[in-house]
Amino acid sequence: MEKFTTLTGIAAPMPLINIDTDMILPKQFLKTIKRSGLGVSAFFEMRYDTDGNENPDFVLNKPAYREAQILVAGDNFGTGSSREHAPWALLDFGIRCVISTSFADIFYNNCFKNGILPVVVTPEQLELLMSDAEKGANARISIDLEAQTVMSSDGAVVEFDIDPFRKHCLLNGLDDIGLSLEKSDAIDAFESQADVARPWV
């Protein structure tokens, strides 16, 4: 997994609430057995018309936002399915950070496994960052994970919370399976004890 330390980039505004996983990546793209190559299909049904032409009104098709690395999105982003294909598609498009007032649990977890930082802010902070994102490509937002800050293009600083463990993994690009396997002895011990307590499992 790629590390996430700092990022300065174009932020695309997506004020719609409840942007669901089927919007982020529709089901026809879940048939892949790979993780790569999904960026072109991200937001497929909003991004392309039925003939496959780009919809010029969709934010990521606008010249200012084609290189966006950050999404500033309405409440409850990523609601719905467990499909990790959704963050894979965002990452493949080039998105490394999503900012919203809340995220669906599974999507939120999935982001951390893929080097994407989901940032939770207050409604007031979202409004500030949304208006900043709406200014276009010249307005770059900066994120500093170590400092846990987002800075708008005009220098306003927003602080955010994050679990120390997830932060640590993201900052260092750590594979958490490797970390858990280091605890194999504890897992062995748990299993022996559980085999006695609940032998029917």
Partner: peptide, 14 residues
């Protein structure tokens, strides 16, 4: 529900 990375985590570590 869990994502695919967590599926891998459970397969490897239970």
């Amino acid at each position: 529900g869990i994502g695919t990375s967590e599926v891998e985590h459970v397969l490897a570590t239970q």
